[in-house]
């Protein structure tokens, strides 16, 4: 069990998440990709905690989870209301706030 495999996996997950955020239009999918990135970071934190034998990384991971849970609640609510008003969840259509 080499810790670097975990790091590689989390990098892979983060990249998938980042690319997903950049290329997908559906807000729900973008949202899921954001979650993926958060969890990739969580994995990194926990791995480093294990490598260093300290707890702070794990504590950070818990923080991220709590914040992510709250974020999901707010984010989903926003997406729901956007969908209700515009009958679409495409992030490219929600572009009113511009120059």
């Amino acid at each position: 069990m080499t810790p670097s495999y975990y790091l590689l996996l989390s990098a892979l997950l983060f990249t998938i998440g980042a690319v997903g955020v950049l290329v997908r239009r559906n807000a729900i999918v973008v949202f899921m990709c954001v979650e993926l990135m958060l969890n990739a970071v969580n994995l990194t934190l926990v791995t480093f905690a294990r490598i260093n034998g300290t707890l702070s990384g794990q504590v950070m991971a818990f923080f991220v989870m709590v914040v992510a849970a709250a974020e999901v609640v707010v984010g989903l609510a926003i997406i729901m209301s956007i969908f209700r008003t515009r009958r679409t969840a495409s992030v490219d259509d929600a572009n009113l706030l511009k120059y």
Binding site: R25, D92, N95, Y99
Partner: peptide, 8 residues
Amino acid sequence: RMQTGFVR
């Protein structure tokens, strides 16, 4: 002009 409104 850089403020396009596109989140992505």
